[in-house]
Amino acid sequence: MVMEFPLLEGLSPVERREFIAACTPRRFRRRDIVCHEGDPGDCVHLITGGRLVVRVTTPLGHTATLTILGPGDMFGEQALLSPDARRTATIVAVTDATTLTLNRSQLERLRLQHPQVERFLTTSLAAQVRRLSASVLEALYLPVETRVLRRLAHLARVYADGAGTPALINLTQEDLASMAGTTRATANKVLRELEDQGVVRLSRGAVTVLDPAWLATRAR
């Protein structure tokens, strides 16, 4: 389980085990709200099972879907840095989900015993900066069709079951369009073209990815 978290790879095996051991397991049922946008940020979550959707409120008061998180992903790192941290998004479980949580007090105890754990924070912040920079570059310079393909390729990885069966993405086209920063009509056009090519199969409220390798190549 430890190796499922890329941001912990900078720690030694002992440090990783201590980090995981210090965490508190949490369970969420489908549709449970893990946190609301604006809530106090009291801990970081390491996702061990299930999938969670990240949504924010736009300046016009609409709800925008940013991404879907799955096993190996993390959220809430800023809560470890400041006692005044606030949640920047609403996180909702779209399936039954499990996480490991670590709060500031638990992290401080770890840092006293293993000062190298400080690298976790540095790595987390660096990863967050890279993600934000990549999102800005995509929004400014990539064609909308490529953005839709990238979001779909990411979702195919998140929803993969590891057995090689087609990934069934239980997500509306409106959510996919929101993730890609486009309209539902444009996302639907791209999906219909992919369906004609045999890459995906569309159904009500879901997309099944039949050829994830082709999709991953085209999404680069």
Rank of each mutant, 00 (worst) to 15 (best):
A134K: 10
T172W: 03
E9G: 11
T186M: 05
A79K: 06
R147P: 09
T58M: 07
V117W: 06
E118N: 06
A64H: 13
E174C: 01
E77N: 08
A206L: 03
G164N: 03
L125H: 05
E15S: 10
R51E: 05
P13V: 12
G49C: 00
A180G: 02
T88Q: 13
V144S: 09
V136F: 11
E18A: 15
V94L: 13
P6A: 11
F120K: 12
V199N: 04
G49Q: 02
A163H: 12
G10D: 15
R109E: 15
S12M: 02
Q113P: 01
T95H: 10
V92P: 09
H154N: 03
L107W: 09
A97M: 11
L46Q: 01
T90A: 08
D42M: 05
S105H: 15
L142G: 00
V94F: 11
R55F: 08
L66P: 06
E195N: 03
L132Q: 12
V2G: 05
T99P: 07
G61I: 08
L202I: 10
N170S: 10
T24E: 12
R16W: 02
V14F: 00
H62D: 13
L210A: 04
G49E: 08
S135T: 08
T24A: 11
G49Y: 06
K189Y: 02
R104C: 02
L100A: 07
L110A: 02
P143A: 00
P25N: 06
T67A: 15
R31K: 12
E118G: 14
M179I: 01
R218I: 09
D32A: 09
R151C: 11
G198R: 06
A89N: 04
V207P: 02
A126E: 13
A156I: 12
R87Y: 10
F75S: 10
T208R: 14
L168T: 14
L107V: 10
T186L: 01
E77R: 05
V92G: 06
G72A: 07
T165I: 03
Q197L: 10
N103D: 15
A126I: 07
G41C: 04
C23W: 01
H62C: 06
A126Q: 14
G162C: 04
R131L: 11
P6V: 05
E9D: 06
R119W: 01
Q113V: 05
Q116D: 12
T146N: 13
T58G: 03
R147S: 05
L112F: 08
Q197S: 07
T63I: 14
